[in-house]
Design a protein around this nucleic acid. Structure first.
Ligand code: MN
Ligand code: MN
Ligand code: ZN
Ligand code: ZN
Lengths: 141, 141
DNA sequence: TGACAGATGCAAATGGTTCGCAATAGCATC
DNA sequence: GATGCTATTGCGAACCATTTGCATCTGTCA
């Protein structure tokens, strides 16, 4: 089974387990999310969904995104361009570098940084629930 | 001269140097910003400004904030609560830990993390222009 | 197949922020 | 200190991403 199909299945199970109806628009949106490998915003997801089924509405895209986010199935990011961007939450945690010139989003992960963050929070008497590390950068010339 | 006064002076010089008029509303807003030690949003700054001079408008608060941000005199943050928050840019760079229960913002700085970030970017062929590190955390029980 | 609660599309509302515009007020000059 | 030009102001309307109310549809399970 392809990764895309696996992701779709995971979404489907998630909703089913929560007793949430698997409607036609939701199926379409799940499919779109499962096959996304970038960090699309709601508009982009809506466009991809409409390409599959023209009757899907932007409202339902937003409602489904919220639903999946609440269940932890997808993650919402707020990069500096205003719109919220989404990606599915499988795979290991990573942070992002945003190319200021192209808008390209590059993923990276540093265990050292993750560890240091936890240490800092601990010293302050806190446990990190989630965090955000975004590097806005320009290609070295 | 107090830190507050120093900050106000720096703001004043910045604007003067750029040939920007030092109007009454701007003076009030500069004063408010200079004396802020937290991370207030536009509404909060507006409230503080109005307490000094009731004729100041929210529009002018926003316009002045943009002006100062463009000159690098203040910094804009976008924590997860939607509104933009501001703080003056003197002092050394730091990042933020946000207490999810109280909303309290705690500042910290880790040279190690700063260094690691630069290394990661360099490996990817990038120079960091700015970055955002926010830890959303809960007090350890 | 029927019933009913949950889900949908549409349009209108929201909330933070920006903008257009006519009126006002810095500031350089006299 | 008065004058003139222009930047700046307050106000309300516009913006834009996202959310919501509502009448209508549709999964789901009996
Ligand atoms: Mn990612
Ligand atoms: Mn700070
Ligand atoms: Zn991370
Ligand atoms: Zn930092």
């Amino acid at each position: 089974m392809s990764d895309e199909k696996k992701r779709f299945e995971r979404f489907r199970q998630d909703l089913k387990a929560a007793g949430i109806r698997l409607t036609e628009p939701r199926k379409v949106i799940l499919r779109v999310l499962a096959s996304a490998s970038d960090h699309p915003d709601a508009q982009a997801l809506y466009a991809r969904a409409v390409a599959i089924d023209a009757s899907v509405s932007l409202s339902t895209v937003y409602r489904t995104l919220k639903l999946l986010e609440e269940r932890g199935a997808i993650q919402r990011h707020a990069f500096d361009d205003g719109r919220a961007r989404f990606e599915n939450s499988d795979g290991e945690h990573h942070d992002h570098l945003i190319d200021l010139d192209t808008g390209q989003v590059i993923e990276f992960r540093s265990d050292k940084i993750e560890r240091l963050q936890a240490e800092i929070a601990a010293e302050l008497g806190y446990d990190i629930i989630r965090h955000k590390l975004e590097l806005y950068a320009r290609r070295r010339s």
